[in-house]
C-alpha cells in the first residue's frame, strides 16, 4: 500500500506518494526528479548515494524514504547558491578531483558535512570523513586536496 507523506529536500517540501519499502535515493531520483544523487552499488558500499539527513551523511540507497519524513534532507542540488558554485565544487574542479564524476555528488556531500562539523580538518580527518565514498578514477589525492583547499575558502566566509 502506498504511503502519502512529505519530504523536505534542500528547504523545499515535496509531497510524496510511494510504497513504504522505497529507498530514499529512488524516491529522490524517480519521484522528485533530483538526479544529482547517484546510485552505484545500491548496497551501502560505495557512497555515490550520500545525502545529508539533518546535516549528517547517510547512504540514501539503503535508507527508507518514509523514514526521512520530518527531517532536513540535503542533496548536491542544494550546494549551489543560485548560480554560484560552492567552494567545494570550484575546488574539486580546480584540483582535478573529477574524472568520470560519478562519485562526485556523494563526495561533495560527505565533504560538506565534514567541513560544517570540522572547519579545519587534518588530512587524517578528511580521509575518515570520506571513508564511505569510493572513487574508481582519481586515486583520491586530488579530492583530499580539494577539500583542504575549500576549508580555507569556507573559513573566510561568514
Amino acid at each position: 500500500m502506498s504511503e502519502i507523506y512529505e519530504l523536505r529536500v534542500n528547504g523545499v517540501d515535496y509531497p510524496v506518494t510511494a510504497d513504504a519499502n522505497r529507498n530514499l535515493s529512488g524516491v529522490l531520483r524517480d519521484e522528485l526528479g533530483l538526479t544529482g544523487t547517484k546510485e552505484g552499488c545500491d548496497d551501502c558500499e560505495c557512497g555515490a548515494c550520500m545525502v545529508l539527513l539533518d546535516g549528517q551523511p547517510i547512504n540514501s540507497c539503503s535508507y527508507l524514504a518514509a523514514q526521512a519524513q520530518g527531517r532536513e534532507i540535503s542533496t548536491v542540488e542544494g550546494l549551489m547558491d543560485r548560480d554560484e558554485m560552492h567552494p567545494l565544487q570550484t575546488n574539486i574542479l580546480e584540483c582535478g578531483g573529477v574524472q568520470c564524476g560519478f562519485c562526485t555528488p556523494g563526495m561533495l556531500m560527505s565533504a560538506h558535512a565534514l567541513l560544517e562539523r570540522t572547519p579545519e580538518p587534518s588530512l587524517e580527518e578528511i580521509k575518515v570523513g570520506l571513508s564511505g565514498n569510493l572513487c574508481r578514477c582519481t586515486g583520491y589525492g586530488t579530492i583530499f586536496e580539494a577539500v583542504a583547499a575549500a576549508s580555507k575558502v569556507e573559513k573566510v566566509e561568514p
Partner: peptide
Amino acid sequence: VGSPATRNV
C-alpha cells in the same frame, strides 16, 4: 563500524 554514514544512524 562502517563509515561516518553507518555510524550516524
